[in-house]
């Protein structure tokens, strides 16, 4: 037995390595948490990413400051004209906003929702081509936890995938693993948002549903992960074959995922309400 083992020692070692790797894979996949190794790697790489990001941002700001000086005179004239138009529109909006504030206060009072936002900067991306992951400079030291929702003023960005002390990885909603329960704001018809790497698709929409190009899509709050009412995007294209049970809508995402630099991580409130008002 020992002789056999000694003869094929290397082969045994290689097979044991494969078994170990597969066990590690299935454990980290089913565990749904951040592994220690991942946390260590992210902690080690954080200073590198943060410092390079800071240097790059400084250079980018300098460059854009220079670029913005060009054509500033022309832009000034245009803006003056726009200002006159805006003043007229503003009078109308003041009236609307008074009404809006009154109603919003009523709603806030009803829901009693206190949401805390953690500001974070994007400092890196996924190391591979197959996943849409962004790395942010906030981690467990800033009370970020797995599955916290990440958004911007424009709309939903994604969720926290893993957390290390100084940084976290965000699974964007365009990632092919991402699923968001959503509804069409106009007529409350439900569907499921799939990330396709190139963009977003709303699938499993009832074949008789009335969808129009330009319909706003918001999160439905079903599933418990994403709160209700977050803007996801607008319908750009509708696909449906006669033999298919469901319609599919191709979306224009509210957030430009290639341009985002800052995000907010939402710390969930302890109330049961899913109403999100921003």
């Amino acid at each position: 037995m020992f002789k056999f083992f000694n003869t094929y020692r290397l082969q045994f070692f290689i097979i044991a390595t494969f078994i170990g790797l597969f066990m590690l894979m299935s454990q980290t996949h089913s565990n749904e948490g951040t592994s220690r190794f991942q946390s260590v790697v992210q902690t080690i790489t954080y200073p590198l990413q943060a410092s390079v990001n800071s240097i790059a941002s400084t250079f980018k700001n300098l460059w854009y400051s220079y670029i913005s000086l060009i054509d500033v005179n022309e832009e000034n004239k245009l803006l003056r004209q726009q200002l006159l138009d805006m003043e007229e529109k503003m009078n109308q909006h003041i009236e609307n906003s008074v009404q809006f504030l009154r109603l919003r206060n009523q709603l806030l009072f009803a829901s009693k929702k206190i949401t805390e936002k953690i500001f974070a900067e994007i400092i890196g991306e996924s190391a591979d081509n197959n996943h849409d992951i962004s790395l942010i400079n906030r981690g467990s030291n800033q009370l970020v936890q797995r599955n916290y929702v990440v958004l911007r003023k424009e709309g939903l960005v994604g969720r926290i995938q893993s957390v290390s002390p100084f940084q976290s990885s965000v699974q964007l909603i365009t990632d092919h693993r991402s699923r968001v329960s959503a509804l069409i704001q106009r007529n409350r018809i439900r569907g499921l948002i799939y990330g396709t790497h190139e963009g977003l698709e709303m699938r499993q929409i009832n074949q008789h549903a009335n969808i129009k190009i330009g319909d706003r899509i918001i999160s439905s709050g079903l599933g418990g992960l994403y709160p209700k009412g977050l803007l996801i995007g607008w319908v750009k294209e509708i696909r449906h074959q006669k033999h298919e049970l469901f319609k599919t809508a191709i979306l224009d995402s509210a957030v430009d995922f290639k341009q985002i630099e800052e995000v907010f991580v939402i710390v969930p409130s302890k109330t049961d309400s899913h109403l999100f008002i921003d």
Binding site: F18, L21, F22, M23, L24, M25, Q27, T28, H29, T34, S35, F37, Q38, V40, V41, Q42, T45, G124, S126, A127, D128, N130, H131, I133, L135, Q161, S162, S169, R177
Partner: peptide, 16 residues
Amino acid sequence: LMMDALSHGIMGLYGT
């Protein structure tokens, strides 16, 4: 494993 940690988080996938 380092690639795994910096992308999808399924440790061992790129390792294998």
